[in-house]
Simulated assay, not measured.
Amino acid sequence: MSTADFPTDPALPPEEQESPAPACVMSFNASEPSGASGLAGDIATIAAMGAHALPVVTAILLRDTAEVFDQHVLDSDTVVEQARSILEDVTITAWKVGFLGSAEGVSAVAEVLSDYPDVPLVAYLPAISWLDEEQQQSYLDAFRELVLPQTHVLVGNHKTLTDFLLPDWDADRPASPRELAVAAGQHGAEHVLVTGITLPNQFIDNVLANAQGPITGEKFERFEVNFIGAGDTLSAAIAALLSVGAEVHSAVAEALSFLDQSLDAGFRPGMGNVLPDRFFWALPPEDEDGAEAALIDPLEPLVADEPPGRPPRRMH
Rank of each mutant, 00 (worst) to 15 (best):
I238L: 06
A282K: 10
N210Q: 09
L263N: 11
H249L: 04
I296K: 12
A48S: 15
A293N: 12
A175L: 04
T198D: 11
L283V: 02
L180A: 05
G245M: 04
E67N: 12
E288K: 11
F69C: 06
Q212V: 05
D287W: 03
Q202G: 15
P312L: 00
A293M: 07
G231C: 01
H152N: 15
S114V: 06
R278K: 05
A110F: 02
A123S: 14
V122F: 07
A30Q: 12
T3C: 02
G245T: 05
A59M: 02
S257L: 10
G290K: 01
Q212K: 12
P276Y: 04
S34W: 08
V207Y: 14
T91N: 05
R173Y: 13
V97R: 06
S31E: 12
M271P: 00
E81V: 05
A265C: 13
E254K: 14
P311V: 00
A183Y: 09
D163V: 04
G185K: 10
L275M: 08
T78D: 12
L241R: 15
E247L: 10
E221W: 14
T78A: 13
N29V: 02
E134K: 11
D75C: 05
F28Y: 04
D260L: 09
A237P: 14
A4D: 15
V73A: 09
S85V: 03
E67D: 12
T195Y: 10
L193V: 07
L54A: 07
I228G: 10
A183Q: 10
H158N: 09
S37W: 03
G231K: 03
L241W: 11
N157Y: 09
N29W: 02
L193E: 15
E179S: 06
V90I: 05
T162A: 04
K159P: 00
D205V: 01
H316G: 14
